[in-house]
């Protein structure tokens, strides 16, 4: 039997359509989830950094704790929501890529919110007087602080991407690992392991790792470049 690296290389080189479909779906689901989590989490995290209200501390603690939300629990919650017997059953979203996106968004959102809050809070301490002097109120400061914190924020977004692309618990429950429809790299790895096809499982793992590595390297490079370029 060929080693997993040989299998992995052959799978990639052959452009196996089933494999490409799995990789494509994994990326689509995770990137969409990251996008939504950023669209919601960046402004929300920044607002949390600048706003002062009763119970703010509790909200911060809850979001920090949710960063450790086990994926299966997130999956279970989304499953119960989207099941035909659940409150959103009529949307017929269970066992679809959309359900997987929702579950992963739930996983990434606390990371984006918490990290954004911490980055923006630090920046605000540095920028507050200057921005007020220039005529920016708290609300108007939000986009400015997000933009000036962009390099640090990218790290948080990447952490979110890493968590989502690596998790299997949530997508397995809400996606159902349906061949050609909701099978991602991680659920395929789980399946191939269950089938005792360890070579294929390891091969998929290598592909997943390579993708994650490439993305992180690109982001790190961009960060370094931005630090050098923008100070």
């Amino acid at each position: 039997m060929d080693g997993p690296f040989v299998i992995a290389f052959r799978l990639i080189a052959s452009g196996d359509p089933a494999l490409m479909q799995i990789i494509g779906l994994s990326l689509r689901v995770t990137l969409t989830a990251v996008l939504i989590a950023c669209a919601v989490g960046l402004p929300l995290g920044a607002a949390l950094a600048l706003a002062r209200f009763a119970g703010r501390g509790a909200v911060i603690v809850v979001f920090n704790a949710l960063m450790g939300l086990p994926p299966v629990v997130a999956g279970l919650i989304v499953y119960l929501m989207l099941s035909r017997s659940g409150p959103f059953g009529s949307l017929a979203l269970l066992f679809t890529p959309t359900a997987m996106i929702i579950a992963q968004t739930l996983l990434i959102l606390p990371i984006v919110i918490s990290l954004t809050r911490s980055v923006v809070e630090d920046l605000w301490a540095e920028y507050r007087e200057q921005l007020l002097s220039l005529g920016a109120g708290r609300l108007r400061a939000v986009p400015t602080l997000l933009w000036d914190g962009r390099v640090s924020l990218l790290t948080g977004v990447l952490a979110g991407f890493g968590r989502a692309s690596a998790e299997v618990g949530a997508v397995l429950i809400v996606g159902g690992n349906i061949a050609g429809h909701t099978r991602t790299m991680t659920t395929a790895i789980t399946l191939e392991t269950a089938r005792g096809q360890l070579g294929l499982a390891v091969a998929l793992g290598i592909i997943l790792l390579t993708l994650t590595l490439t993305l992180n390297a690109a982001a790190w490079g961009a960060g370094q470049w931005a630090r050098g370029r923008l100070g």
Binding site: E126, Y127, G135, R150, L230, G231
Partner: peptide, 24 residues
Amino acid sequence: AMVFQRPVLLRRSVAANLDYPLAL
């Protein structure tokens, strides 16, 4: 307007820093 002992300049170009309060 006010100029601080250690001014906070935004992480963008010189021209964009000049533009910022005008946009506000």
